[in-house]
Amino acid sequence: MAALSDSQRQDLMAELSGLRRFCHSLTGNAADADDLLQATVERILQKGMPADAHTAKWTYRVCKNVWIDELRAREVRQRYPATETEEETALSADTVAESELEVAAVSTAMAALPEEQRLALTLVTIDGKTYAEAAEILDVPVGTIMSRIARARKQLLQLLHPAQPE
């Protein structure tokens, strides 16, 4: 693969806001989303993309793969943790507490969704992708996207508006 062409760079720039929302749906918080977005763009700029690739589809797929790599790395770090000082632990707890305070009810409900439902819902309802585009990005059939979105919407309604006892 060659370096990005000017048109691919422009297409990548145009896709960044949607890609950031996708990153947020994967990670669940803004700081990790920004890190994931940066890692995704760096990988695309370093590795390039095929000349015939659809920029949006390519970037979302690269992003998903970068996130999978990050999850695997986190698993290894959890299995073999480095020794932390008390100060580092306290700072992490403060940072986490501040982040949790900023999360709105919808974000909390979205985070409660299974990952495959959250990703499908984010791609279609927030990023405006078609069901076919979302299916291609997530590498699943269109019918699977449709059912994941239907289940996600139903679960969001239940989480945001729990049934009142009679």
Results as ranks from 00 to 15, higher is better:
residue 2 A to R: 09
residue 5 S to T: 13
residue 6 D to Q: 15
residue 10 Q to W: 07
residue 11 D to N: 12
residue 12 L to P: 01
residue 12 L to E: 03
residue 17 S to Q: 13
residue 20 R to S: 04
residue 20 R to A: 12
residue 21 R to P: 05
residue 24 H to L: 03
residue 27 T to L: 12
residue 29 N to E: 10
residue 30 A to Y: 11
residue 34 D to F: 08
residue 36 L to Y: 02
residue 36 L to S: 06
residue 37 L to F: 06
residue 39 A to L: 03
residue 41 V to I: 13
residue 41 V to W: 06
residue 42 E to R: 06
residue 45 L to P: 04
residue 46 Q to G: 04
residue 46 Q to T: 10
residue 49 M to N: 01
residue 50 P to M: 07
residue 53 A to V: 02
residue 53 A to N: 00
residue 53 A to G: 02
residue 59 T to Q: 03
residue 62 V to F: 05
residue 69 D to Q: 09
residue 69 D to L: 01
residue 72 R to T: 14
residue 76 V to T: 15
residue 80 Y to P: 09
residue 81 P to Y: 03
residue 88 E to A: 11
residue 88 E to R: 09
residue 92 S to Y: 13
residue 96 V to F: 14
residue 98 E to M: 15
residue 100 E to W: 02
residue 101 L to V: 06
residue 104 A to G: 15
residue 105 A to T: 08
residue 105 A to S: 00
residue 108 T to H: 14
residue 109 A to D: 02
residue 112 A to G: 11
residue 124 V to S: 04
residue 125 T to H: 15
residue 125 T to A: 13
residue 126 I to L: 10
residue 130 T to N: 03
residue 132 A to F: 13
residue 132 A to Q: 11
residue 132 A to S: 10
residue 133 E to I: 07
residue 134 A to F: 09
residue 135 A to M: 02
residue 139 D to H: 02
residue 139 D to C: 07
residue 143 G to F: 00
residue 144 T to Y: 08
residue 147 S to Y: 02
residue 153 R to I: 08
residue 154 K to I: 05
residue 155 Q to T: 10
residue 157 L to N: 15
residue 164 Q to V: 15
residue 164 Q to T: 14
